Computed example of a mutant assay.
Amino acid sequence: MTAEAFQRTFGFTPEGEWAAPGRVNLIGEHTDYNDGFVMPFALPHTTRATVARRDDGLLRLHSSDDPTGAVTALRLADLAPGRVTGWTAYPAGVLWALREAGHHVGGADIHYDSTVPTGAGLSSSAALEVVTALALSDLYELGLERGPLARLCQRAENDFVGAPTGIMDQTASACCAEGHALHLDTRDLTQRQIPFDLAAAGLRLLVVDTRVKHAHSDGAYGDRRRGCEAGAAALGVPALRDIPYDELDAALRRLEAGGTGEEVRRLVRHIVTENRRVTRVAALLEAGDPRAVGPLLTEGHASLRDDFRVSCAELDLVVDTALDAGALGARMTGGGFGGSAIVLAENASTDKVTEAITAAFTTKGWAAPRVFTATPGAGARRIG
């Protein structure tokens, strides 16, 4: 379908088709820009791109999700931070980042089609960036490895789009393996693929999209990042990753004695405890005990709600209702301020949990959330 849409839009046949997934972050929220640990897995939901090269210095972009149906034409020579807005800034930023890094990349015609929900905390922007980078790397024979490719996509989002995100989302989209969660050390980018087969244990992980939209480029996300950096500077470490869990209480006392405010101290506490939760979840999965992960998810939500303060009423309602309905654990996932929550539940109780959450939203007068089962899919790849 995407190849046919490309031909209808641009009038000729594309050279190939690529796909990159959205992601769910199982545990490890806001730790990536603190050099910490994360554990995402890829969703089956993907952004697909059909692409052909151009030799006239133009980048032409079209998306089936754009209600205007317009083709956006951009001159490569004019690409610079702040000059492109809207969804086209993400692929334009990727091409800019590739050229800034010294890669010989010309123009392209690209048609996009996506099943990754936007604004749901499931990394639709990273999927868009990664599929663009992979397609251009293949077509222009750049030979980019997945790690450097993810870094270039992060630079596109940070420096071109202006969203101060960490490296997790792009790495998850580029590097995840089907049937596995990705344990990623965001400092040195070492990776472990950890088997993640909940069905074999009689479990499911539900994603609950609250349909509350958010934007990482909003000031609140940047405020959290700057607060973490201030905490690390006050403690004399390169990043909060460098504060061991067993030294957290002493570190918090040092911050208080030095006049660091309560808000920054809360941010520090979340990052240090969240890194420990990632390590504990990885150990439980490797030991074959996924049920024991549930309480750690719930603990992580409390930390994001109370210390990092990035939850919202809709996300809190999902978590509280799911737990009351018998779920093993639940938490918000993604950057926060809206988006999605995840719920770990026994197979036999998933219908009850879903019905309870939907009824709770109805009682509040809110639009019904979208609920689906998340299974770990494959990372970015060429599909045609």
Rank of each mutant, 00 (worst) to 15 (best):
T85S: 15
D320W: 14
L284K: 11
L139S: 02
V272T: 13
G28Y: 12
L134F: 06
G335K: 00
G147T: 12
H62R: 11
D218R: 00
S114N: 09
E100L: 08
G11M: 09
K352F: 14
S125T: 15
L304G: 13
L134S: 02
L267T: 09
V371D: 07
T186W: 14
V38H: 08
R146W: 05
T2V: 08
A52Q: 14
V264L: 06
E286T: 14
M168A: 11
L255Q: 04
V51L: 09
F361H: 03
A3L: 10
W18I: 06
L240G: 10
V116A: 12
D307T: 06
V207P: 02
T186K: 13
R382P: 14
L149V: 06
A251L: 08
P81M: 11
G121W: 15
S64P: 09
G336K: 07
P164E: 11
D35I: 07
R151K: 07
T190K: 15
T298V: 03
T210C: 01
A368T: 07
A174M: 10
A234V: 13
H103R: 12
G121N: 12
A282E: 14
V51S: 09
A322R: 01
L139G: 02
A150Q: 10
F337M: 03
L315V: 07
Q193C: 01
K213D: 07
A345C: 05
R60F: 06
R269C: 11
C153A: 10
L149R: 06
M332R: 13
G288T: 00
A49S: 09
A313W: 12
A292N: 01
P376K: 14
A127M: 04
H45K: 14
R192E: 15
V94S: 14
L26W: 04
I243C: 09
A135H: 07
R253P: 00
A283Q: 15
L76G: 00
D289H: 10
I27K: 15
V268Q: 05
E129T: 04
R277H: 14
R305D: 02
A250C: 05
E141C: 00
A360H: 01
D32L: 01
A77C: 00
V208A: 04
V208S: 01
H301C: 08
A108T: 11
G57R: 07
A200V: 07
